[in-house]
Structures are given as structure tokens and as C-alpha cells.
Write a protein that binds this DNA or RNA. Structure first.
Length: 255
DNA sequence: ATGGTGGTACCACCA
């Protein structure tokens, strides 16, 4: 199974790029975040024409997650059990015997913001949910925009970002608790170039200067990570005209 | 200091 994640920052704007990318990359599963698309407006036929089925949980203007798959999508679930949330950030499904969680973790804005507290509460609720899911599904993948850079090597300027949102100790601790359930950040299972990032701010020519963070992750449960044969960041879509601020991350599993 | 969205034709909100 070849599976990828991409925060597209509006599927309406990025649809031609996503279609081109799928045709070139031929991923089996693509998890999208920030579709910013109402469910009634989801471009089902654009993907059906390429041989993909879709599942989505959207809302106007903000958030929105979707799964695009060449294999049948089963047992779809949205949100986090017992956590009331109007924001569409979680889409789970079983594909080819693998339980897949497509996640758009809250950004948090800044560490002194109410949105940061919401982020930490959201991550605590997610951890409870994933703990239960791992007991039911040994083969489990979490992927998406985590809005957390796991380590300093995932940050272009760790000193400048120290303690800031996306890098703070509390966020990294929340991610570690998730990993400690038995998940692994498969990107680090393979040799990677230094200064590998998945997101660059639109401002201050951040991409040209490679002022990025690696915040888009693919986490695999123990039994699956042993089957993981590659994980890489495809920086090319970030070079296009009118790009998303994120670029795809792709992993392959010999399932 | 850029970009997407939605309500109003520039501005507020979010990232």
C-alpha cells in the first residue's frame, strides 16, 4: 500500500494539482487536510474519473479532511469519541485491512492562546481514542497535519522556535504520549536529507530560504512499521504556481 | 508579511 498525506489549504483551489499528483504518483490512498469544502461541494467525479473512491468530512471555510482511495473504504468514522467538536479534523476508515486515521491537528495559534488549550485538550482526547483503536486494530496508521515538529531536527531554526507553538514542550509531550502507545514516525526509519521539511510559511520567502518545519507525519503501529519500505517528502508540489503551504509525505507498506 | 475564505467590493479571520 502506498499512502500519502497532503494539507492542500483549499481543495477547490488545489484540485488540478491534486489530480496531476495522483496521476503521477499513483498512490493507493491520499489523506487530505484543510479541504475547506462543504460535503455537498466535494469533487467526487474528479476522483472517480481517476478510479478513486472518496470519503470526506468537511465544513465551509475552515478545516475539512478527506480520504481518496483506489481500494474500498470501509467503517468510516468522524471526530473523536466523547469529545464534542464542531471542527472537522478527524476521518477514520479501514482500507485493505488497515485502520487509517486522517488527522488535522489544531494549529494552536500561540502558546498563550485559547486555541492552544483547545489543541492540548484535543490531543489528550485523541490519545484516549487511539489507545482504544490500537487494541482493536493492530494494523493502524495515523497520518496528517500534526501541527507539531517532533524534534529540533524537524525545525529550520530550533533556537528561534524554542517554546513557540508547533514546537513547545507540552505539544511535543502530547505527541510522545501518542507514540508511546506503540506508534512510530516512519520518516525517521529511513535515511533522509538534513533540513527535510513539509511546511513553509507563505510569508518572508520561507520556502525559497528553506525556513520550514516537518509537521506532516505518518505514524505506524508496531506490526505495520515492520512492513514499511519507504517514507519520503515530495517537495515538488511546493514549487508550483499557487501552491499549498504544505507538501505531500508518502510512505509505502508491503501489506 | 502571503494566501484562502466569506461577506461585501476592502476587510476580518485563520494559518
Amino acid at each position: 500500500m502506498k499512502i500519502a498525506t497532503w494539507n492542500v489549504n483549499s481543495l477547490r483551489v488545489r484540485l488540478p494539482q491534486v489530480v496531476d499528483w495522483l496521476q503521477r504518483e499513483k498512490a493507493d490512498v491520499l489523506a487530505l487536510q484543510e479541504t475547506k469544502t462543504k460535503d455537498e461541494d466535494f469533487p467526487i467525479t474528479a476522483f472517480a474519473d481517476l478510479g478513486y473512491e472518496v470519503s470526506y468530512s468537511g465544513q465551509p471555510t475552515y478545516n475539512g479532511v478527506a480520504l481518496i482511495s483506489r481500494l474500498p473504504i470501509a467503517d468510516v468514522a468522524t471526530g473523536i469519541d466523547g469529545f464534542e467538536d464542531a471542527q472537522r479534523r478527524v476521518l477514520a476508515a479501514t482500507i485493505d485491512g488497515v485502520r487509517i486515521y486522517n488527522l488535522y491537528v489544531p494549529n494552536g495559534q500561540s502558546v498563550d492562546s485559547d486555541k492552544y488549550q483547545y489543541k492540548l485538550g484535543w490531543l489528550a482526547a485523541l490519545e484516549r481514542q487511539i489507545s482504544a483503536e490500537l487494541a482493536r486494530h493492530p494494523k493502524c496508521i495515523l497520518l496528517g497535519d500534526f501541527n507539531i515538529a517532533p524534534e529540533d531536527q524537524d525545525v529550520h531554526d530550533p533556537a528561534a522556535w524554542e517554546g513557540k507553538v508547533l514546537c513547545s514542550d507540552a505539544e511535543r509531550a502530547a505527541l510522545k504520549k501518542l507514540l508511546d502507545l506503540g506508534l512510530n514516525d516512519v520518516f525517521r526509519n529511513f535515511a533522509q536529507e538534513e533540513k527535510s521539511y513539509s511546511w513553509w510559511d507563505y510569508r518572508a520567502a520561507a520556502f525559497r530560504r528553506n525556513m520550514g518545519l516537518r509537521i506532516d507525519l505518518i505514524l505506524a503501529s508496531q506490526s505495520l512499521q515492520n512492513l514499511c519500505t519507504s517514507c519520503r517528502i515530495d517537495v515538488e508540489p511546493r514549487r508550483l504556481e499557487r501552491p499549498s503551504d504544505h507538501t505531500p509525505v508518502i510512505a509505502e507498506f508491503s501489506t
